[in-house]
Design a protein around this nucleic acid. Structure first.
Lengths: 334, 334
DNA sequence: CTGAAAGCGCTAACAC
DNA sequence: GTGTTAGCGCTTTCAG
């Protein structure tokens, strides 16, 4: 390993001067600069970041905390964050399936200048400990009650609202709502949007049209969608389905096809999440797209801002959601 | 920030003793240990990893180098690596779309004890520089000619062979082979397996049955599969399709359906990669599964071994591949 | 069993 | 313009 000392010795200068030159801090002559730069290059000198970090107290790396589900479902979160970091010469560490305690420890260990936190359920009060630690925090997409925290949210309510409204505009009034784990924040929000839109259009919501199911795994989700449609299609009448998760919608599609009916002819189906299969199944699924990349970018930018400018204004952003209308939607059959 | 000094002062001991106790290095009395541990706990002391790294020369973090495509397609690579690292108290940094030069610099910066490298095309000779740097290396899945490098490969040849053999066993002799970018190592290997299996069964391979196409993007891939089947189905006769990528197979499936024919009744289709849509499309696609998680685990284990034991034996592993037979395969129609 | 001291590689305040 | 020096927080050798 070649250190700053080696360069200093070889160029017959002090390490201070060498450091100044290498970091372009000024106070050196053109010639010494040239000499040092040449020698550094010849020696293949590369600064040791650990040492620099110890001295400066900054690591120029941030961590992203997320769970397995998120990683599998939305790997683009990683790339979007990474791209922003790269332009600022920051690095990205991955922390999977962690909890607040561990986040707190990680921050104290001093290897991160900040943390991007996704999808951790935060008990009120728990946040206290974290925010006290050195290091900045930005929460992504979660359900954070506290106001004094940076947060990039997604407007799931609006997503549910939009999807329902679209269905209503197509003439549908009986819309089966198949929901994910009801404890989940986004499920509740989507439902709120669904109900709001119904209400706005003077449509009375009907309890039997709201279906819950086992959504503990992707397969379970598919089954939920499948069963929901299969069981209810004959008895309850509905002409459209809104699922809180694309995988649920896949199951619904299967059920329709097994019944010998057509999507979108007999039934319109809209999902949520725009997962990768949705583009490839037949019919290509209309769905609500969650702006994951945008969330990643914004989160990273806010975090970087806080770190570098020590800008301590709390920022909250709520990201709008868009519908992707592909092939699974049509007007209500006569 | 509470440092070892604070603990030393408060317990009226030297930092040396405190350090020894905190790291369980022995040479202290039971009482002092208790006292120090209590104070450390009271103070919420957490060791600064940057300082430790500077001293020990070890960071206990490794980097994984991969490109966007890989990340999107196989996020489980990340989780499998992460899981292994976690049990050894190592951290994981993500490096996206990098090249060998950058890897070399990263290693020199001293923030990694080692690198897991996926999918970088290595020119002969380039490797030299890298291996000379401090830090261990394990290559994942790539096409590395050099022998003196740790490598966890995937036996794509066997995958192509297996898939073809399975088709032949089902009675197919005319198997359309739709291939990805022919410069890609795995494409070549799969093709080799295809040809080998054909030959082994005394089947003469036919040039018109090998189709290339634009595979620069997922959409292009789908189109390739679509066009390949659409254009050739009437003129060239074949009863099965082997695609080097699931997305190509999706396109093929669509073409068949547009022709009013059935998979697997009229045509059997097998893909490669077991991408996430394959489970959800209709029919559920039979495909060849790449053991990504296993590759990640093994790679991480080898790397960790090299780092901690300074075990310098070069390890090469070639991972077997498995077929997943779902719904897109049947015997050759009479 | 404990402590003093060196030093990892770097930055930065200060003196010259 | 340049050098001396202190010190970031820790581990480890060595002396006692």
């Amino acid at each position: 390993m070649v250190t700053i000392k080696d360069i200093a010795r070889s160029s017959r200068l002090s390490i201070a001067t060498v450091s100044r030159i290498l970091n372009k801090k000024g106070n050196y002559s053109k010639e010494t600069e040239k000499k040092v730069l040449r020698i550094a290059k010849d020696f293949g000198y590369i600064a040791n970041l650990t040492a620099r970090s110890l001295k400066t107290g900054l690591t120029r790396t941030i961590g992203i905390v997320l769970n397995d589900f998120y990683l599998q479902q939305y790997p683009s979160l990683i790339s979007s964050v990474f791209d922003v970091l790269r332009t600022h010469d920051f690095s990205l560490e991955i922390i999977l399936n962690s909890n607040l305690n561990e986040c707190s420890r990680l921050l104290s260990e001093g290897r991160f200048d900040g943390l991007l936190i996704t999808d951790i359920n935060v008990e009120p009060g728990e946040l206290r400990e974290l925010t006290e630690r050195a290091g900045d925090l930005v929460f992504l997409g979660g359900d954070i009650e506290r106001e004094d925290v940076n947060l990039v949210e997604i407007d799931y309510f609006q997503g549910g609202y939009l999807a329902t409204k679209h269905l209503i505009n197509l003439g549908h009034t009986d819309i089966l709502f198949i929901e994910d784990d009801t404890n989940l924040f986004f499920t509740q929000e989507i439902k709120r949007g669904y109900l709001f839109s119904l209400d706005e259009n003077g449509i009375q919501y009907k309890e039997p049209l709201i279906i819950r199911g086992d959504t503990s795994s992707p397969t379970a989700r598919e089954m939920t969608g499948f069963n929901a449609v299969k069981r209810n299609f004959r008895e309850t009448s509905f002409s459209a389905v809104l699922a809180t998760d694309d995988k649920i919608a896949y199951g619904a599609l299967k059920a329709v096809s097994e019944e010998g009916l057509k999507v979108p002819g007999n039934l319109s189906v809209i999902g949520f999440g725009n997962m990768s299969p949705s583009e490839y199944i037949v019919p290509r699924l209309s769905t609500v797209e969650i702006p994951i990349s945008q969330m990643g970018e914004l989160g990273a930018e806010i975090l970087l801002n806080n770190i570098t400018r020590k800008d301590s204004i709390i920022k909250r952003v709520k990201l709008k959601i868009q519908m992707i209308d592909r092939e699974s939607l049509s007007s209500k059959p006569a």
